[in-house]
Amino acid sequence: MNVSFILLAIITVVGTAAAMGMRNAVHCVLALTVGLAGVAALYLQLGAQFVGFTQIMVYVGAVAILAVFAIMMTHSPEPAKPPTFSSFWTVGSVVAASVFAVLAWAIHSSSLAAHTLPPQPEVTVQQIGDALMHRFVLPLELMGLLLTAALIGAVVIAMNHREEIK
């Protein structure tokens, strides 16, 4: 547990907590971005360079921008409503506490806490590429197919919309 891990953990937790707690939607998205950047920094701290930078590029660079676009196009700046107390709070906190307890018990009783870890492998981009092309080529192709289907679906939806206007 070194200093950098604690710092990054604090940033991530505060960012994601603020993403849940803030009232302005744009502030929520920006706080979420901070949380995701914290996760990316944690990846980098663990030595997984490729995953860390891909996390930044995909989550911060694409997913956050997507959320931002959604807000820009649909949201009207409404005045912040004061927080109200409802009965959902108690039920919600009970559920959250129980989920936390289950996760903490699972992590604590796993091999991570027992410190019986194999030595950390030095994963280079080359190895990731090799694995993707040899061992995991079928999942790769399936994901490619899925993404292509999503892209074509988006284009079809957008195209239909344009023809309606005509």
Binding site: F53, T54, I56, M57, V60, G61, A62, V125
Partner: peptide, 10 residues
Amino acid sequence: VLYFFAIGSL
């Protein structure tokens, strides 16, 4: 190079 493009998206 990946780092460079990741930062560019910021």
